[in-house]
Write a protein that binds this DNA or RNA. Structure first.
Lengths: 224, 224
DNA sequence: CTGAAATGATAGTAATACTATCACAAAAAA
DNA sequence: TTTTTTGTGATAGTATTACTATCATTTCAG
């Protein structure tokens, strides 16, 4: 027997909760692997169906389209990061230490943790880095936002901004700093791997220490 | 007669230079309008052809596909911003003032300038804000990067990072700060418009003053 | 054991992302 | 001027994508 983590995600994202069935979990597990392999644009439900020995029609019973699946995965990741932050800051009283844990979670979300058996957190993090921004850069943002599809991100931003305000109550941009640390983390890992001239840091064999050091430096300096 | 600005963009981006012909300029002009209207995913060459009274086949003679057209447009924008920065910092000696001009250009690129008659810089800026990240978030980044498709961004990052190093030669992350100011500018304008809970600033009727103030604050604090 | 729910199998449609061919007009070269 | 080249339009066609619909079968809960 195993204690399974289960996140409550906005139920408008799916037609049937994939966390409830074998097929659903298969969809999550292998969509992560497949998107990581081929990239989001050339990922299709047909390919996914072949991969898991199912059919397109069956997958469409869970997700209306691949875009909603992407939002689902990104939200899953954000819930996972929020969860990590929560358990690792529980017994910390120093807000500066909490922010260090937060930054560590942004950068390392994949490593050092047990996780959920059907989710490869490391590959999911790669997807968030490479494809995450596509989740909310569409013509339908406003409609999707009003359905609550981005509350996971907002909640994370809020909890991080609370820590920031705890460190420096006079800092005027706690939300902007919170989201910027997250976006910057993903961006610069991506830059280091693919467009190194756009950053100063380097990531060798998935060693993202330099990113963490940079984010800590930015945060400290801004909040001093 | 008019003095037309003309940017030299990587010639691998197009099959035939659209800046050379009436149809080419029409493609640029109306693709900007159309992508701004429908968003990149539902923008198609067929719709564009109908809009300008031409045919799909004719457009394919200029661009291999809509993805390369997007990279072309983003590069055009970056060249335009670089050009603005160059002419507006020419007679400045104070590096801090230069950085202010840079930030102003990131945020306001559209307004207060004459421009090129077939390019609506304001709409182009909107496209960069909403769709820009898709230009380099694909499985083909590495291949496209090696063809030099992203040199406009790299050049901009380099020139901004030079100003940053001029302000504070000991600052360890001049490139990261340069790209972050650019990305942050676009991100937070987008957040303010569509996901306001992810930022602290607001943008009313395209008044982006608050974004500019925030970026200046971040830059000053980090470089102090 | 029975019935409902989940899945598989198959088929079909509209739109997308192209490629190919031919005809025509205008501009450039001879 | 004539001839070529070049650019554009018109039309057609193909493979793939993004779905939707229907019916049969399996699975599992009561």
């Amino acid at each position: 027997m195993s204690l399974q983590i289960r996140f409550t995600l906005n139920d408008g994202l799916y037609l049937k909760d994939p966390q409830d069935s074998k097929l659903g979990k298969n969809i999550i597990q292998h969509s992560i692997i497949l998107i990581d392999e081929c990239g989001f644009e050339s990922f299709t439900f047909k390919k996914l169906a072949e991969r898991i020995g199912s059919t397109e029609a069956s997958i469409y019973r869970y997700f209306e389209n691949k875009h909603l699946l992407l939002i689902f995965l990104v939200n899953w990741y954000l819930e996972w990061v929020s969860y990590l932050i929560q358990i690792n800051t529980l017994n910390l009283s120093d807000a500066r230490l909490k922010l260090k844990v937060i930054i560590h979670s942004f950068v390392f979300a994949s490593k050092d943790n047990p996780g959920v058996d059907y989710v490869n957190e490391s590959k999911l993090h790669n997807i968030v880095i490479s494809e995450g921004v596509k989740a909310y850069h569409t013509k339908e943002v406003d409609a999707e936002n009003s359905k609550g599809f981005f509350t996971s991100y907002k909640n994370l931003a809020t909890s991080v901004s609370n820590v920031i305000s705890e460190i420096n109550p006079k800092f005027e941009y706690p939300y902007a700093l919170a989201t910027n640390l997250f976006e910057m983390s993903n961006n610069h890992i991506y830059f280091a791997k693919h467009l190194p001239r756009l950053t100063d840091i380097s990531v060798n064999e998935n060693n993202v220490d330099e990113v963490e050091i940079m984010l800590n430096y930015f945060a400290e300096k801004l909040l001093s």
